Simulated assay, not measured.
Amino acid sequence: MEDFDLNKVRLVLRAAGDYMLRQVELTSRTFDNDPMLGVVYLAVLQANVRPIADDPRLSKTYAGAEPPPDSVRVPVTARAIAESLNIPRETVRRYINRLVDMNLCNRDGRKGVVVPQAVLTSPEGMQFAWNTYANLRRLMAQLRELEIEL
């Protein structure tokens, strides 16, 4: 284990805990007062763009103001989401059905589901993104105020 300053670790953990709780509250408020619905939505969204995020060239190509277009998003199955979150597939399937019913995800045949670009650029999608960004900036400001560099 590397040398570390226990006081610094505690300060970072407090700030991170505060950030996480604010994000859970934001996600709950945004997703029908159900934070797990938001977690499944975010897991689908991240899986849809993982090939972009994993490729530096594609990351730069799609780093603009608009989210990546639907044509480059990769559908994800309930099974893959269940495995990534370590929760039962049936639970994920029910949440995905709710997301589809709420028009937050589209089914792509038997390939899985996709969060379409239109959802991310909707007023609600933009507000969630902005609030998440503001929450992250608040965490970074707290760390700077505490004179902590990671």
Rank of each mutant, 00 (worst) to 15 (best):
A15Q: 07
P56K: 09
L26V: 08
E90W: 03
D70C: 09
R94P: 00
T27I: 05
L99S: 03
V40H: 09
P88N: 07
R110Y: 05
R57C: 06
F128W: 10
P51S: 03
P75E: 01
V92E: 08
P75H: 04
V113F: 12
T30C: 11
V76N: 12
V39S: 10
E2G: 15
N97C: 00
P123T: 13
V44R: 08
V72F: 01
L42E: 07
D34F: 01
A129E: 04
R138F: 00
I52A: 04
A82P: 07
G17C: 09
P88Q: 12
N131V: 02
Y41A: 07
A65S: 14
L13P: 01
S59G: 03
T132H: 04
R14W: 10
A118F: 02
T30M: 08
M20T: 15
P116L: 06
C105T: 04
R14T: 14
S28D: 08
S84H: 02
N86G: 12
N135R: 05
A15F: 10
G109Q: 00
A134S: 09
S71Q: 14
P51V: 02
T91E: 06
T61V: 14
S122K: 13
A63V: 03
V100F: 08
E25H: 13
N7K: 11
G64I: 09
D55Q: 03
T77G: 11
L136F: 01
P123D: 10
L45P: 04
K60L: 06
A80I: 00
G64Y: 07
N86A: 10
R137A: 14
E83T: 04
Q46E: 13
T27L: 03
D5Q: 07
I87H: 02
D54Q: 13
S71A: 15
E90V: 11
N33G: 12
P67G: 04
T91Y: 01
I96V: 15
Q127T: 10
T121H: 09
Y133E: 09
Y19N: 14
V76W: 14
L6M: 12
L21D: 09
L42R: 02
V119H: 06
A78R: 11
Y62H: 14
V76M: 03
S84R: 10
V76T: 15
I52N: 03
L21Q: 13
A129R: 07
F31C: 09
A134H: 04
P68L: 13
A65I: 12
A80F: 00
A129G: 07
V40I: 15
V49H: 07
T77I: 08
L13F: 11
F31R: 07
V74W: 02
K111G: 00
D101Y: 14
N103E: 15
F128T: 05
L45V: 02
R10K: 15
N48H: 03
P88F: 06
N103F: 01
L21G: 02
R107C: 00
E124C: 00
N86V: 05
E66S: 15
G64A: 06
A16N: 15
Q46W: 05
L143T: 03
I96D: 06
R10V: 05
M20E: 07
R110T: 00
S28A: 15
W130N: 11
A82G: 13
